[in-house]
Design a protein around this nucleic acid. Structure first.
Lengths: 191, 191
DNA sequence: ACCGGCATGTAACGGGTTACATGATTTT
DNA sequence: AAAATCATGTAACCCGTTACATGCCGGT
């Protein structure tokens, strides 16, 4: 899903400026499952404008820099609906922390501790955003997605609380590479 | 975390060829939280070789193409340990499906259904891999990470089972944009 | 006085994804 | 006979991230 489609989605919820679109992905309702930065948004809006999928109205503000408020056109709406029918790319998860914890035995215990504390804290922060009751009735799709995020973060926090003891120093686990010597052994399970 | 570090991590578990490293990330123990393709692995191994962080032994096989088995050097081991001490990038989650379901009201009910079924199925597949009891004792770090993945996937499946009814057609939800008209309304909660 | 938030953009750089190229062997 | 697996690589391209550039306002 490219930056253009993401912008269309943001505008699907109502007119917005580039700056506001970023907030939607930074702290707003999209933040748990997609991200875009300024560097992608502004060019994307420019392209969408050229393609006639959005229009833009300059809005002068008092005490604030001018704002370009974009909104969907008919073509943009159609393009977005079409994008929603394309095959979704599989979910992508990238976690440096898990990668590091995978090698916990190689790490100083303080490091492991710091890593886990920070990790839990990050989940707590994300949860606190989602746990705030919405200020208004939100449609089912949004409610589902929001609840999904909450469920995942809760599960993560619970798991960390219940299993971090696995990583706390167990007095020098004897350094042992693993039971598998070759990569094949690690994958094959039916001899 | 770049492809080079990821390769070092894979080799940390034992010597492997490029092809085998990919499997580690495709179906192996890293697959839940990091991914790399051939296009990144082979160049990365080449660079690591040039930097003296890995060495390589050509292994002729019977009935198979030749294989280049790479293994860490002292320098490579040190480099990897150093990488484990760097600040981890925040977790990244990218889900087209959730983005689409966010707009469930705009989608034909069959589409929503298909999307959710496929989504659940994907989680079930991931879970089945992790639920297989390991063929040997695995060290605490790996156990923790593996369990983490399991917990998350379980939570996802449970949530879907319990809440998919939210998305099933509720006889024509009256088309209503939302209660928020401007993007600001969506974000501000303290007037 | 300075920092953080609002606001919009550009340019370069880097890196990963995709596609291409090749080829033997095993499975269906 | 075709498809999948094993196996290694290269090259181009796209696209996103990062850094840079600019400027005003409000709060500390």
């Amino acid at each position: 899903m490219d930056a253009k489609t993401l912008c269309l989605g943001a505008l699907r919820m109502g007119p917005a400026s580039g700056y506001e679109i970023r907030k939607l992905f930074e702290e707003g309702p999209f933040s748990h499952f997609h991200q875009v930065g300024f560097g992608s948004i502004y060019p994307a809006l420019g392209m969408l404008l050229a393609e006639g999928k959005v229009r833009c109205e300059e809005a002068a503000q008092d005490g604030r820099p001018d704002k370009k408020v974009y909104h969907l056109t008919e073509a943009g709406l159609r393009a977005f609906d079409a994008a929603l029918m394309k095959r979704p790319a599989p979910d992508l998860i990238r976690s440096d922390v898990l990668f590091m914890l995978f090698f916990a035995e190689r790490l100083p215990p303080e490091r492991v501790d710091a890593l886990i504390n920070a990790y839990a804290e990050a989940f707590r922060r994300s949860l606190s955003v989602l746990d705030m009751p919405p200020d208004c009735v939100i449609p089912p799709g949004r409610r589902f997605v929001r609840g999904f995020g909450r469920a995942i973060y809760r599960a993560a926090l619970d798991y960390i609380a219940d299993h971090r003891h696995l990583l706390e120093r167990t007095e020098e686990t004897p350094e042992r590479e693993s039971c598998a010597q070759s990569p094949n052994d690690r994958l094959e399970r039916t001899p």
